[in-house]
């Protein structure tokens, strides 16, 4: 059995007037340490799938096992990063990054020290006592990453975490996130609609199609690109090739609809 086993997930959203199938028969296996991207147009159910994996919503049918256990029972093994940092403005940086540990009653001297070290590693100086408003967008997203990593999750869900940043900050953060996760050997799933970002960061890309949301095609990223940082990968000749083939696939999807 794989590290993360997603089997036959169906999900339908019900409203008074309609029943929308967001996901139809999605099965994916992910191995430990892999960096996966869910790529696709909006409305293809990729964020829904992420929420289901994180145990935030229950699927209409299907199962998800993380290390042979249903995800509902292992929610603290999953870290989640949102589009924006969503640091709590009424808490200091320190209170923000200790939040996950505090909620699960794991806040002690060791975990506190570990978390503050993480903050240092992210290239953030003495910011613990500051309020989130005093930091720039890129710094805040790095703090959010520390907050997510502080609880030592086994797997990270990245829900378009760079989409609210300016381009330069986004490229820098891609490198930081990628190298950090590799150094810790963390498994990660990135949801994005940015083809370049998906290629630069991932080992494997699942291309989703809409109506109903389903996996359309899988792309394995060539070895040469995987070993480079996202920024270097963007300049590699292979990058353009992969980009072209994904682009064609997306075009054909549009055409069929």
């Amino acid at each position: 059995m794989s590290f993360l086993e997603i089997t036959n997930i169906h999900h339908t959203y019900f409203t008074k007037t309609s029943a929308n199938t967001a996901l139809s028969d999605v099965s994916i296996q992910i191995e430990e340490g892999e960096f996966i991207s869910f790529l696709g147009p909006s409305g293809c159910g990729k964020t829904t799938l992420l929420s289901i994996i994180a145990g935030l919503i229950a699927p209409t049918s299907g199962t998800i096992f993380l290390e042979k256990k249903p995800v509902k029972q292992s929610s603290h093994k999953i870290g989640y990063m949102l589009q924006q940092d969503y640091l709590f403005p009424w808490k200091t940086i320190e209170e923000n990054i200790f939040l996950g540990l505090k909620l699960s009653n794991r806040l002690n001297d060791d975990t506190r020290k570990y978390t503050l070290e993480l903050l240092q590693k992210m290239g953030l100086g003495p910011v613990e006592k500051l309020s989130p408003k005093q930091l720039s967008g890129g710094m805040r997203q790095r703090v959010a990453l520390v907050r997510t990593l502080a609880t030592e999750p086994k797997i990270l869900m990245l829900d378009e975490p760079f989409s609210a940043l300016d381009y330069q900050t986004k490229l820098k953060l891609e490198d930081l996130v990628s190298t950090t996760l590799k150094a810790f050997g963390k498994t990660a799933i990135l949801v994005t609609h940015d083809i370049g970002e998906a290629i630069a960061m991932s080992d494997k890309i699942y291309l989703f199609a809409a109506n109903p949301g389903r996996v359309h095609k899988t792309f394995i990223i060539p070895e040469e690109l995987r070993n480079l940082t996202p920024f270097q990968a963007r300049g590699h000749e292979q990058y353009t090739k992969v980009f072209q083939s994904i682009w064609k696939e997306l075009e054909s999807l549009e055409f069929r609809e």
Binding site: A54, L56, S75, H76, I78, G79, Y80, L82, Q84, Y86, F88, L99, G100, L103, S104, T151, M157
Partner: peptide, 14 residues
Amino acid sequence: VDPNYLKVLQTFGA
């Protein structure tokens, strides 16, 4: 209250 704040807390199992 912005539901995303609640989502953050939910992901920590609050």
